[in-house]
Write a protein that binds this DNA or RNA. Structure first.
Lengths: 241, 241
DNA sequence: ACCGACGCTAAGCGCTTGCTCACCCGGCAG
DNA sequence: CTGCCGGGTGAGCAAGCGCTTAGCGTCGGT
């Protein structure tokens, strides 16, 4: 699977073809430069079209962001609910939720960056809609945590606060993950599932042991995975990965 | 302490007065709308000056962001190093680091938001400088974690990855913290210190117990603390808190 | 052969942006 | 009183912005 495919594969059901190319181009541009720093000319250029062609498929630049945000949030919510309603102990389900959510945000870190960090640029009504989805995502995680606590499986200092921390930890993966770094999305997902089970003091559950990566690979240098450096030069299509 | 003071107090040593007012205004504007969506007219307006006055004190809009970013990162680094070099066990020092870092990012969440999420808008050379500071911050935390592991005090799946997760968790506080929410900066700091000690399996240390907030305040609804809604209307100075 | 629909482009409109420039004003040394 | 100087303003420039409009080529259906 190429890196380009990783950006594009989530949008395969968008038609016509030109509309899908525009979404993919917008995701890349928004992730690199941010919504406000991205021009409609840039998006259209990446999609191989003239600036005016954008407005045949989308009414405004903001509608593009809205589509991206809506689909991404819905996808996140579906993942979390699937984990919540899956089988196994609360620890199994919490680990599954974290693993899936984190893996997706690492794999699709460009999309994730737009989804998680650009929603402030949405129009007020669209923003409200997205916030509702986010609340439901939080509800899904909190349900798992609360069930684990009720079953005596977890021990947490405070359910809402712990839920918030878990969600926050997972979301932030989209910010720092670098595909050129040393960790694969699977590895980050497994590591984070382990760390989250520790946060809720799930006593060395089977999932934690099964998925834990090898401990103490001592020589690894811990230079932080860094987001792409800013680009003042207008390289545009030179390395569209 | 007023909310305005919370934004302003970190910049008291900037002179002359007009330059400081501009920084405070820029922090608020960048935090609310993002760097690219903020106009120099907006900044100058909030500071009670004409647009041209900005350029008497700062060469460009980017230089304002650079000042904010530099001071904020330096302050973060100082806090983390102070905790690292403080006394006590590794658990004590890790908890102190997290508590201070998180409390600052909650208290000064506007500044924190700019510092942590707008660095992509920096010019390449300024960006490089800031990245160096961030690496040193990561080094400070990793040192504490590594020492705890070496002393047999911590048990972590992987030192670099755990360090990254701890830092990421703390940074993201600036994104979601809402001063109108139910948690004070102190409470969030204590909660996070507890959660981080769990991540490294520091066995129920004194710090964790001393600072842990009351557990299981059941009735609390877990609606996520949300960032300010977007504003299309140009309210500007109406509720500058 | 004709035609309307569709996808697209070249050109550009109205506006906002970051930033500049000529000028102004109050305080203070000589 | 005079001259200077740091801090400030009003007006505005060049460039770039989101978006529109008039028109063009290429289709499938009749």
């Amino acid at each position: 699977m190429s890196a380009e495919a990783a950006t594009g594969e989530a949008w395969e059901d968008i038609t016509p073809d030109a509309a899908r190319r525009l979404v993919v181009a917008a995701v890349q541009a928004f992730a690199e430069r941010g919504y406000h720093a991205t021009t409609t000319r840039d998006i259209a250029g990446r999609a191989g079209m003239s600036p005016a062609a954008l407005y045949i498929h989308y009414k405004t630049k903001e509608e593009l962001l809205y589509q991206i945000s809506r689909v991404g949030h819905q996808r996140s919510l579906d993942m979390l609910r699937e984990a919540r309603d899956g089988g196994g102990s609360a620890a199994d389900r919490l680990a599954a939720a974290v693993r899936a959510f984190v893996r997706w945000h690492a794999e699709h870190h460009t999309t994730g960056r737009v989804v998680q960090y650009e929603l402030g640029a949405l129009a007020p009504d669209h923003y409200g809609e997205i916030v509702a989805l986010r609340r439901q995502s939080e509800d899904a995680i909190r349900a798992i945590v609360a069930e684990g606590v009720a079953a005596g499986e977890f021990d947490v200092p405070e359910v809402p606060g712990t839920t918030l921390a878990v969600l926050s930890l997972c979301i932030d993966v989209a910010r720092w993950f670098n595909p050129a770094g040393r960790r694969t999305p699977d590895e980050v997902g497994a590591l984070y599932a382990d760390l989250v089970l520790r946060m809720v003091r799930a006593e060395g559950g089977p999932v934690a042991d099964r998925d834990r990566p090898e401990a103490g690979d001592g020589g690894l240098q811990a230079v932080q995975d860094l987001p792409d450096p800013p680009e003042t030069a207008d390289r545009r299509r030179s390395d569209q990965q």
